[in-house]
């Protein structure tokens, strides 16, 4: 699918992608983005996974030309920021973290307005409106004022508005925020359908399920830095077969004998907990309990983490993804 259906005149290179090198964004003395390198291939969905304050929205704001940056280079479809900002804007579809809609206008009126801003007119406009309404499943509510929509419906319309002008790249900033669990699945389905419209997306979230389900690759972000970028499967391999967290009496003296155990690969301490990467979780649990028993160490907590992005994140940062 790469490059073949590129209809935009602005697209300077055949190989449409995002390339970010050494990006730094400061707010006063604090670095919201601290040396980020990222590439997004044509047709790829890249997830930006990180906790609150990781710098996800700031990265999106810089990409969408809304915020300036202090160092680094950014090219989108061969265009450079900030130099080509005006042309870049036409290539981007933006789904802001907050809903960005006019509540007193109907769904159609909102879409019609945003479409006109992007230069759509007449039949082309009404066809696009019909199409994006279909994608997000709002065709039957399009005439109602947006304020009468449920939160999930407003989220869907918020996404639809970004698709009108057939953007090359869609930036979605936490589109699931404030969506109740029942609507979540539906919304995820709609986002998957959006891929048929626009292949390339950058998707920020602090929810690992969303990232695992939607994204081809996931970039794990914290404190303005990218800690790892890979497919979910590869990221999970970082954990080996799993991670075990142990808190026990005489913890310091336990580290050395634990590291000797056969199924233990590596080990470190953070927040008063021993984090043990293991090759075989079942075998390791047995060995660890046995060792503690032999040394008469009282186990305060013993936790085997499932191998998922959440535990990868925990493993990489020592922090939970959730607040």
């Amino acid at each position: 699918m790469a490059g073949s259906d590129c209809s935009c005149a602005e697209c300077a290179s055949d190989e449409c992608l995002v390339e970010i090198r050494g990006l730094v964004k400061r707010y006063g003395s604090r670095k919201a983005i601290d040396g980020v390198d990222l590439t997004v291939q044509q047709g790829e969905v890249l997830g930006l996974l990180g906790p609150n304050g990781a710098g996800k929205s700031t990265t999106m704001a810089v990409l969408s030309t809304l915020t300036s940056f202090d160092a680094g280079t950014i090219s989108l479809c061969g265009l450079r920021l900030p130099r080509d900002a005006a042309r870049v804007k036409r290539l981007l579809g933006i789904v802001p973290q907050e809903l960005a809609l006019y509540p007193s206008l109907s769904g159609t009126q909102n879409l019609s307005f945003f479409g006109r801003i992007y230069g759509l007119r007449g039949r082309a406009l009404s066809e696009r409106i019909a199409r994006v309404l279909e994608i997000v499943g709002l065709s039957n509510r399009a005439r109602d004022p947006v304020r009468s929509y449920s939160g999930g419906m407003q989220r869907r319309l918020n996404m639809a508005a970004s698709l009108l002008h057939r953007p090359r790249i869609v930036l979605l900033d936490e589109p699931m925020v404030g969506v109740d669990p029942q609507s979540r699945n539906l919304l995820l389905e709609h986002i998957e359908r959006m891929r048929a419209e626009c292949h390339t997306m950058i998707y920020t979230t602090h929810n690992m399920d969303e990232a695992a389900r939607l994204c081809d690759r996931v970039a794990i972000m914290d404190g303005g830095r990218i800690l790892a970028v890979d497919t979910t499967a590869e990221l999970l391999k970082l954990l080996g077969s799993g991670v075990i967290h142990l808190a026990c009496s005489g913890q310091e003296s336990m580290a050395a004998p634990l590291a000797e155990l056969e199924s233990v690969r590596s080990l470190d301490t953070s927040d008063g907990v021993l984090r043990i990467r293991v090759s075989d979780t079942q075998a390791a649990l047995l060995e660890i309990t046995r060792l503690c028993h032999e040394r008469s160490a009282t186990i305060h907590s013993l936790e085997a983490l499932e191998p998922n992005l959440e535990s990868v994140f925990l493993h990489l940062t020592g922090k939970s993804l959730r607040d």
Binding site: L66, A86, R90, P96, A100, L101, F114, I117
Partner: peptide, 13 residues
């Protein structure tokens, strides 16, 4: 407040 201003600023406008 509603963020529509940001959407407009991100538009080719």
């Amino acid at each position: 407040r509603d963020g529509t201003f940001r959407r407009l600023l991100a538009a080719p406008l």
